[in-house]
Simulated assay, not measured.
Amino acid sequence: MEPEAPYLRIAAEIRDRVARGELRPGDRVPSTREIHREWGVAMATATKVIAHLRDEGLVSTQPGVGTLVRQSRLVPVPREREPGSAPPALTRELIVRTALALADSDGLEGAAPRRVAVALGVPTKELHRHVRGREDLLTAMLDAVFDEEPWPLGPPAHWRDRLELSAHRTWRMFQRHPWAAPLLSMTRPHLSRSAIAFSEFSLGPLARLGLDADEVMSINLTLTGYVRGTAMSLQPERRAEQDTDLTADEWMDTQTGRLAELVASGHYPGLRYVSAHGFDYDLDALFEYGLQRLLDGAEARIRELGLLPEG
């Protein structure tokens, strides 16, 4: 018999601590660095331990807090329901809400129908009475997250204000649900009712300017792509923080020596200039800077077409 992989052995030991009550729901499990020190394994192995426990549904990771035992343990579901037991009161809303919670905790892979069924304590086939499959579930999830923040009762009439409001609203949604950024495909979009209504909020005022259809869609998709592209860094950053227990700023602190070497080499004058004057990396500020420059470019293009007054 082949020896058990170290990460599986360590995961089993942590699972036993939960079973014995030494780690209770909401308690923090050993971090990758603590696993590295306690069990004497490589950081890559420690990372696999946390990933395995997360895939089992035993733990979830909260950015800035750590990896915690789930409040509600996820346990395997028997293929057949116990004789005489009542079926769970499944609804489409409950399934979607559960999938959202799993995706927020573990990324989009956490919302796989099998994982959702395990979380609800039902066989996977029971979900298909309410959702037609994974694509239907993902579309329903997009509908839900786009509907979370209501539109203002009196939306701005000016086209630029509309686009700016829409971009900020999308950015906030991606910050709450980073998994939604890769899901919102630019080439094969899910036909989400709410996402289409979101686009309409920007398309309408652009069309009323007199732009042709190509210009209207190009401006809208360029802005959407910018927001989505910036948000694509959110999920990997959360996972990196989960795996290393280091925030982005803390990780950069570990790179100061290497950065100093690169600056001192004299080969990178631009990097030397920025390093000497300082740069406060703030993703929200960076997002806002890029958004305003894109809107400036759209405004310049609309003026060039003679659809806005000069000045």
Rank of each mutant, 00 (worst) to 15 (best):
D253F: 06
S275Q: 14
D249C: 00
D280S: 10
E261Y: 08
L262M: 14
M252F: 09
R272S: 15
D253C: 02
S265M: 02
W251F: 13
T256M: 10
G278P: 00
A260L: 08
G257I: 03
M252H: 10
L259V: 03
H267V: 04
D282M: 04
D280W: 07
L262C: 02
T247L: 03
T256S: 11
H277R: 15
Q255H: 10
H277E: 08
R258F: 12
Y268H: 15
V263K: 01
V263R: 00
T256W: 07
L271T: 08
R272T: 12
V274T: 13
D249N: 05
V263E: 07
A264R: 14
G270H: 11
G257Q: 12
T254G: 07
Y273P: 01
Q255C: 08
E261L: 11
Q255G: 00
M252K: 07
V274E: 06
G266M: 09
A276E: 15
Y273K: 11
Q255P: 01
E250R: 10
W251M: 12
H277K: 11
R258T: 13
S275N: 15
A276Y: 05
R272H: 11
Y273F: 14
V274K: 04
H277S: 04
V274G: 00
A248F: 08
V263A: 00
E250V: 02
L271G: 03
L262H: 08
P269R: 05
H267A: 12
T256E: 15
R272M: 06
Y273V: 06
G270K: 03
T247Y: 07
D249K: 06
Q255W: 06
T247E: 04
A264Q: 13
S275F: 06
S275D: 15
Q255R: 15
G266S: 06
Y273W: 14
V263M: 02
L271M: 13
Q255Y: 11
D253M: 10
L262E: 07
R258Y: 09
D253K: 02
D282F: 04
V274Q: 12
S265P: 02
E261P: 00
P269M: 05
Y281C: 01
G257F: 13
E250W: 04
D253H: 11
